[in-house]
Computed example of a mutant assay.
Amino acid sequence: MSAFPAPVRTTHRGPGRPRNDELDGQVLTAVLELIDEQEDVTAARIVQRSGVSRAALYRRWPALTTLIAAALDVGREVPPAIPTDGNLRGAIFSALFGATAEAGVTDYPEERFRQRIRLVMADRELQKAYWSSHVARRRIPIEAALRSGIEQGILRHDLDAEACFDLIAGVFYYQIVVRGDRLDDDRTRERCRAALDVAWLGMQPNN
């Protein structure tokens, strides 16, 4: 799924040619429709459904993996910076539970989330593309807040902020992927909160 077959080009694309947001939207919508319908995402199907030419498709996304990764991220945003000058634990927990509360909104329905898990687990190259181009960016605010907590002495000086984020995120993914529960269920959220309390206690300095 790495690259599209090279098309026969009849025109030369000039340097600095701007992207067409309307065409981008048509392509991404077509890919999402195929994903939501659990259809295989191929260049031919994207072209047929979007009405965008193969040449335009190749100019925008040289690899099918990067296109699918971009489509899977439609409706998701990089969270804002977390304030670190007050109750750091409360600020981080609020950010985490605020993000999970949005998991079931119309822009990113649960079924698409499950399709995303299925697709990336079936294709390591897609998984890596989605990670590097989208997922890694959304970790930045919480990782920055954790590093601030380490610098302030609120958290242990020997902590690895990336590892801590993995631990925290794993709490939520376990509920969805392993237990099959919903993050908008009160009991699920209570389990997550209890697990985060344990994790936070372990991240604090030993007094």
Rank of each mutant, 00 (worst) to 15 (best):
R124V: 09
A81R: 09
P62L: 12
N20Q: 12
L159A: 12
I35Y: 03
G25E: 15
M1C: 03
V120L: 14
I68N: 04
I142C: 02
S53Y: 12
R156M: 10
L146Y: 07
H12K: 12
R19M: 10
Y174Q: 12
V178T: 13
I82Y: 02
F97W: 01
M203E: 10
R147E: 13
Q175D: 06
A81Q: 11
V27T: 14
I92P: 00
T29F: 03
A95N: 03
V74A: 11
G90P: 04
A122F: 03
N206G: 09
D85E: 15
S2M: 13
R139W: 06
V135T: 08
E22R: 14
I92K: 01
G149L: 07
Q115N: 12
E190C: 05
Y58V: 10
V135D: 10
A91Y: 02
R137Q: 15
R60W: 05
D24W: 00
L96I: 05
F113C: 02
R114Y: 03
T100Q: 08
H134T: 03
T65I: 09
R60M: 14
H157P: 00
T84R: 01
R156F: 13
R112A: 07
L72W: 06
S53A: 15
R147M: 08
V120N: 04
F113H: 12
R187I: 07
G25M: 11
L196Q: 02
R54F: 05
R156C: 13
I117L: 14
I142E: 07
G180A: 09
N87W: 00
A194S: 12
S53M: 12
I150Q: 15
G51I: 07
A55Q: 13
R137V: 08
A122K: 04
D24Y: 01
F113S: 02
Y130S: 08
S132T: 15
V120W: 04
D123A: 01
A101Y: 04
D73C: 09
P18D: 10
V52M: 10
D123K: 02
